[in-house]
Computed example of a mutant assay.
Amino acid sequence: MSIGPWQIILILVIVLIIFGAGKLPRVAGDLAKGIKNFKKGMADEDEPKAADAAPEALESAKSDAAEKKDKAAQG
């Protein structure tokens, strides 16, 4: 059992009646943002190791800067 063109037209008419013509662009934009955020969240789950490596690199950069300041203060 598949959805035919008449069923799609009926669904669109019901949506138009519920939301009205003025709110449809906003509803569509919100739906698009939701889908984009969902895809971004799924992509973030695939790369957790890259997020874990970033704090280590930041920490080593901080320690390097601290060492340079100590050497400059001594010399």
Rank of each mutant, 00 (worst) to 15 (best):
K36W: 06
G41E: 01
G75M: 06
M1W: 04
P5I: 11
I18L: 07
Q7V: 03
E45I: 09
A54V: 03
D64T: 13
G34I: 09
I9R: 09
K33M: 12
L10E: 11
G22F: 05
E67C: 00
A61L: 03
G29P: 10
K23F: 12
M1G: 03
D70G: 09
A43S: 13
K36Q: 08
L31C: 11
G34N: 09
K33P: 01
R26E: 15
E47A: 15
G41R: 02
F38W: 10
D70A: 15
S2K: 03
G22S: 03
G41Y: 06
G4I: 03
G29F: 15
F38T: 12
I35Y: 09
P5G: 08
I8R: 06
A54M: 01
D44M: 05
G22N: 06
A61I: 04
K33G: 08
A65F: 05
L24R: 01
K36C: 02
A50L: 03
S63R: 07
I8V: 14
A28T: 07
N37M: 07
K40I: 00
K33I: 07
A21L: 13
D46C: 02
L24Y: 02
L10H: 08
G20S: 05
G29H: 13
G41V: 01
A73V: 06
D64S: 10
D44I: 07
I11P: 01
A28V: 12
W6A: 00
V13D: 07
K40Y: 02
A32E: 07
F38N: 05
I17N: 12
L16F: 08
V15N: 10
A54E: 11
P55Y: 03
A72H: 11
G20V: 01
E56P: 00
K62C: 11
P55T: 05
P55A: 11
I11S: 06
P55Q: 13
I9L: 10
A50H: 10
V15S: 11
I17L: 07
